[in-house]
Design a protein around this nucleic acid. Sequence first.
RNA 1: GGACCUGUGGUGCAGCUCGGAGUGCACGCCGGCCUGUCAAGCCGGAGGUCGCGGGUUCAAAUCCCGUCAGGUCCGCCA
Length: 460
Amino acid sequence: MCGADPGALRRGAVDSPAMPDAPISRSSRIEIGALGGHARSEVTVCGFVDTIRRHRSVVFVVVRDETGAVQVVANPDPAEPFAQALNDLSVGSAITVRGALVDNEVVKLGGLEIQASSLVVESLSEAQWPITEETSLDKRLDWRFLDLRKPENLLIFRTQTVIEHAFRELWAEDGFVEIHSPKLMASASETGSELFRLEYFDGYAYLAQSPQFYKQMAMAAGFGKVFEIGPVFRANPSFTSRHDTEFTSVDVEISWIDSHENVMAHEERMLHAALTAVKDRYGALIEELFGVNIQVPVLPFPRVTHEQAHEIVEASGYRVPRADGDLDPEAERRLCAHIAREHGHEFVFVTDYPAALRPFYHMRHDDNPGLTKSYDLLWKGLEITTGAQREHRHAVLRAQALEKGMSEDEISYYLDFFRFGCPPHGGFGLGLTRILMILLARANVREVTYLYRGPNRLMP
RNA sequence: GGACCUGUGGUGCAGCUCGGAGUGCACGCCGGCCUGUCAAGCCGGAGGUCGCGGGUUCAAAUCCCGUCAGGUCCGCCA
């Protein structure tokens, strides 16, 4: 170990310093964001070293915690008790600083600084970081914990917290019940083509691709209205900016509805509440860090039928190349552009999809069995939700399942939900990561997912 | 799964058409100078299997083939 890493000895000296003085109380730290309103007196702050600017007789250290950043000014005189710590300090290190908080209008960072009287290196960072501001996303994801130290990344998850809280507030007021459905299943909940299979004792289990059947079970159980925010798993080898193999889904199911219209009305209220809350709480910060001015959507959202959507897209000079007639991403972008132009709205419900494009459990129109009582919700050109009124009549449901080629054995447990009385109901699934991606104008779901999972990424 | 694109010091790039010594830029890192910086500045330095394998050639970062990794879009979907 001699000389292999000349910094190691010095770091060792810092990590276990002689500490003659009483230790600084970390738990009495002031959050940096609160310093502006704090008395100009001795304060303790804890945080990561953001930058170090060294001069002969003065050193500036910018310290950042989860609430903000502040400049610390320190004297590098070898006679200072923290001289060695200051000399060895590196960007990224976790430190505790105590000193006099003073106003100084020369300081660009908030007009404040702390004149250090003591400085403790709690944990020294290696000097050379593997990532920088310029590093490509994939490499930053390898070092996600370092990437997440950036204030804008913290803001993503603060925003997510506000969104979920706004949803939960609304659900609580409306008497919804929260459920946590199992993620281990015996068989497919929908198509079966995109399931992860894993060993389960002497047999196999599958990871749930959706809580679909289980939230419908809650309707048969008489829970009335339920929600779940939880992980879902999709074994799609999808290489796009908007897909992942594990993501957080916001699921809702509501009993005693008249049609999918009631479901849409609930969802637009949810999004209105969430965006209002985000704008109130972080609108200015989001504008500053992401350049996004949040538009709280007007209620109700515009609605077009699937057929009307096609007419709008074709009028724009684009013919959907797909054989099955569903809207492709280009058509969805054009439709949203049209709605934004004509109605000044970022959202649009596309309703009444052909039965051929929808799963067996979507209810069909009484007067037109070729169309379902279903919808997608698009936001700024991206699909964020699929919802529908469900078919709750056992005989009809069973017939539609058989028509779609489902095996009765595989879904008999599901069909049982409808044999002993079940309310008319409907619901939807909403991709939380897609909401964040659109809301914060990020290019990719990987950036707004705490730890992204895709076909080629299981680490960290 | 399909199409197209990209792999060059720690990071981001240029160099590749038209082969000629690992050449260059910016940031970072290390050392030095500098009473107050705030994108600090100035001087010096270290750091490379040009993703990997094969081929063509006197000679390959450069041309060809294969392979691996990544990106964008499509398909699938939320």
